[in-house]
Computed example of a mutant assay.
Amino acid sequence: MIKLVMCVRRRPEMSRKEFQEYWRTHHGPLFQRFASAYKARRYVQSHTIDTPLNEDVRRSRGMSQEYDGVAEIWWESEEDFVDAISSAEGQRPRSVFLDDEAKFIDFSQSAAFFTQEHVLVKENG
């Protein structure tokens, strides 16, 4: 499995609440509609919460400001991802996603990269 991780920041004219609402209630369902054509195995949005803990962690490590959220999309393999974005069926959702993301994501302040997960602690139970 491979995973695309997107650390996203909102467009400057949006509040965090507006950004997260749009992301969850509009973009999320949009992705769900095309997930099978995109060969995505899993899609998760993690929304940053407003808590003083963010500032404490950031300051204690000398880190930059937090992102507004993180998106994770899994594929079975790199080949599945390449096949999905190369196929006619996968081209349409890719452009739909990019057009929609431009409405709420500040691309210049965000980051995206592929990863392979290494689970070091599993939940008990």
Rank of each mutant, 00 (worst) to 15 (best):
T48S: 06
S60A: 14
F104M: 09
E18G: 11
E117Q: 13
Y43T: 09
H26N: 09
H26K: 11
P93C: 07
H27M: 02
E66Q: 06
A112N: 03
Q32W: 02
Q65K: 15
E101I: 10
S60F: 07
I73W: 05
R59G: 05
P93W: 05
S15L: 06
V8F: 02
K103N: 09
R61Y: 06
A71K: 01
R9H: 08
D100L: 03
S60T: 09
R10Q: 08
R61L: 15
W23A: 11
S36K: 10
R92M: 01
V70T: 12
Q65M: 05
S64A: 15
Y43A: 01
A40G: 11
E13M: 08
T115R: 02
T48M: 05
R42N: 02
H47E: 05
R58P: 10
S95G: 01
R42V: 05
A111R: 12
R9K: 15
D106V: 05
P12M: 14
A71C: 12
L98I: 11
D56R: 12
E117W: 07
Y22T: 09
E123A: 14
V121T: 08
D99H: 06
S87G: 06
Y38V: 03
D68R: 14
I73V: 14
D83S: 15
W75S: 10
D106Y: 09
V57L: 14
Y43D: 02
L30Q: 01
K3I: 13
D99A: 15
A111Y: 07
S110D: 11
D80Q: 11
P93G: 04
D106C: 12
R33A: 13
H118A: 08
G90Y: 06
A37P: 00
V119G: 03
R41V: 14
A102H: 02
L120Y: 03
A84V: 07
A112G: 05
L30D: 04
R94L: 12
M14N: 04
I2G: 03
F81W: 12
T115L: 08
P93L: 07
S108N: 13
H26F: 13
P93F: 06
F81K: 09
D50L: 07
P12L: 14
E76H: 08
R42K: 11
R33Y: 08
D100E: 00
R10V: 10
D68M: 03
S86C: 06
E55T: 12
L98G: 09
G125K: 10
V5D: 00
V57N: 05
D68K: 11
K39T: 04
D100H: 02
V121I: 06
Q65G: 07
T48F: 03
L120F: 03
R9V: 08
S86Y: 03
F97I: 08
M1E: 14
W23K: 13
A112P: 01
L120V: 10
F31N: 10
P52W: 14
R9S: 14
A102S: 10
I2F: 01
Q65P: 00
H26T: 15
K122C: 01
E89T: 10
V121H: 05
K3N: 14
R61D: 01
